[in-house]
Amino acid sequence: MAAAAPGPNDRDDEDGSTVFWVLQGMRGILSTPALILSTAMIGFAGLAREAGLGWLEASFMSLMIWALPAQIILIGAITAGTSLAAAAFAVALSSLRLTPMVVALAPELKGPRTRRLTLYLLSHFVAITAWVFAMERVGRVPRDMRTAFFAGFAVTLTLANTVLIAVVFNLIGQLPALVTGALAFLTPVYFLSSLYGSARDLAGRLALVFGMLALPLAHAVAPQFELVVAGLLGGVPAFVIGRWLEARRAP
């Protein structure tokens, strides 16, 4: 795997090759998954505006979190007037999935001379879209160029969408009110479809249904903590029932 790199050893040529792979990564922001993500980010801009945030806060949030579920949860927490501790807890629960994703991606990106600091910095740009993109393609990139390739794609994707949010947020002000609502509604449709598509097992799909059903209940019982309560109320039974059904199905 590591041996395939036909990369030149000469310093100048190596720099030229780094630029080449950064550009190869950057080209990826024109791919279909990246365009779908941009649609979702337009939705996020609409949602943030509906929640009463400013454009700078919305762009800052996206740049610093760079995980759409966590961003949407934080918007929900801000709308509901949730405390800092409860909001952070809900965000932490939703972002937990990033650890196994990074654990899986890091050995793929790491070259013989990759510094740990580089990996820490690049890990900030790991989210679903960049992760899927990198896991698919990084195997075809010479090992010592993989961080350059990933940075070219993921950093560009993050920055481009940060700018997109700022632009869309300000354009929305010129549009009819119904359009703002319609843009905000992009998010739930996008999430429901993409989550259903990426749910690998029965438990994941059950969690989708149970989580939605649990929300009105949690909203009535504990509006301050409705997201966390619904997440646990939906997720734990989905996990247990999913396991039980899969065990029964297996001979």
């Binding site: 929640a51 429901l192 649990a214």
Partner: peptide, 22 residues
């Protein structure tokens, strides 16, 4: 699984209890 249910809850929140124009 819990993370998926959490995002599902957010979807329901956005649909059932939205803010603004929606």
């Amino acid at each position: 699984t819990v993370a998926t249910a959490l995002v599902a809850a957010v979807i329901a929140q956005l649909v059932l209890y939205p803010s603004g124009e929606l």
